[in-house]
Amino acid sequence: MTLTANWSYPNAIRFGAGRINELPDACAAAGIKKPLLVTDKGLAPLPITAQALDIMEAAGLGRGIFSEVDPNPTEVNLDAGLEVYRAGGHDGVIAFGGGSGLDLGKMVAFMAGQTRPVWDFEDVGDWWTRADSDAIAPIIAVPTTAGTGSEVGRASVLTNSETHEKKIIFHPKVLPTVVIADPELTVGMPPMITAGTGMDAFAHCLEAFCSPHFHPMSQGIALEGLRLVKEYLPRAYKDGTDIEARGQMMAAAAMGAVAFQKGLGAIHALSHPIGAMYNTHHGTTNAVVMQPVLQYNRDAIEERIERAAAYLGIEGGFDGFYAFVGELNNSLGIPANLTELGVTDPDKEAIIKGALADPSTGGNPVEMTEDNTRALLDACF
């Protein structure tokens, strides 16, 4: 089976090996003549980034780049990116990379023409209507990992550098105009990042599947996304050049992000404040807290997980699925708990406060309270 396709769900996605060469055509489709490529510090010096810049330059699009992006991007990174965008006279953004590069690139395009501070557009009620929609620049998204699925999302996660809180900034027009999903760009991902980003996709699918909200479309997408990660993440981890596994994981990542329109839950409610305070890798943190959260939600999700386990070919119902998650984490070299992850002197009260304030709590199957969240957090150490 050839893993090449054009999808228009939820945006225009050009999926397949080698399709990075279509970058100029994608820019033309989005009406971009002078793009700024936004990526992170780690990706900037790599061959795949040079390749993208060469393709841009050969097409007369220049080779504008901004790469001062931290693993957990902040408003400081955003301000620096906006300065480069405006000074260079750019008219659109190529968001290039994993979650951090994609999220910050989307925010540069979003904020380029706004006059209010970014925090005024947090995903609260209808705050997004405060933005000037006409001033949002077009976005091309080029994922280079297979985890966040930010390329098909209408929001970005931004860490407030002063309060160390992660905030979700939302607007419908933050959805990229065109996505180039080229699995060849993910071949150089180190095993550790392959594991962490892959488990991020798994967490998105799992939490969406367990969320109590009504959204049957997302439910189905989440279930098949779980299957793809189960089948292909071990292969991609074992052999980074397995292009079929890389492609299927790229699809699973996009599916997870589409599915979590149905909601996230306690996994993300914990990992957001932990990542903001201790700078841990987001997907890896999700993987570390996954088993404790499954146990925490057991009474509410047992029957649903039994159905998922049957579809995934996992025997033993809930207990079998729980054991599978532990075995998968172990096989991928994921730390066994938060202490092993490096969170050695935790401010548990601050984590609990952050978790309960996180919008992901609303999608958890069990109502999160101060007491039961404390017990959950203790179980993660």
Rank of each mutant, 00 (worst) to 15 (best):
V118R: 08
Y278C: 03
I48V: 14
G153C: 12
Y296D: 06
V366K: 13
L61E: 00
Q114L: 15
I352W: 04
G147E: 08
R14E: 08
A29N: 05
I139R: 07
G16E: 05
H213Q: 11
T145A: 12
G60V: 02
M1D: 04
V38H: 04
A95S: 10
F260T: 15
A95Y: 04
A203Y: 02
Y322G: 00
A58T: 05
S8N: 07
I20D: 04
I169E: 09
I169Q: 07
N160R: 14
A59D: 01
G147V: 14
V343G: 04
M217N: 02
E75R: 07
G256N: 00
E315Q: 13
A253C: 11
A195I: 09
L82V: 13
G188W: 03
G16Y: 06
N364H: 01
A135C: 08
T145H: 10
S218N: 08
G220I: 04
P292N: 04
V118Q: 07
R154S: 13
V187L: 11
H215Q: 09
M107A: 15
A12H: 05
I274S: 08
G42T: 11
L3F: 14
L53F: 15
D182K: 02
H215G: 06
I168K: 05
W119S: 09
P143A: 10
I20V: 15
G326S: 13
V38I: 06
T74P: 02
G313N: 08
Y85D: 14
Y9E: 05
P45A: 09
A276I: 07
T148C: 04
E340H: 02
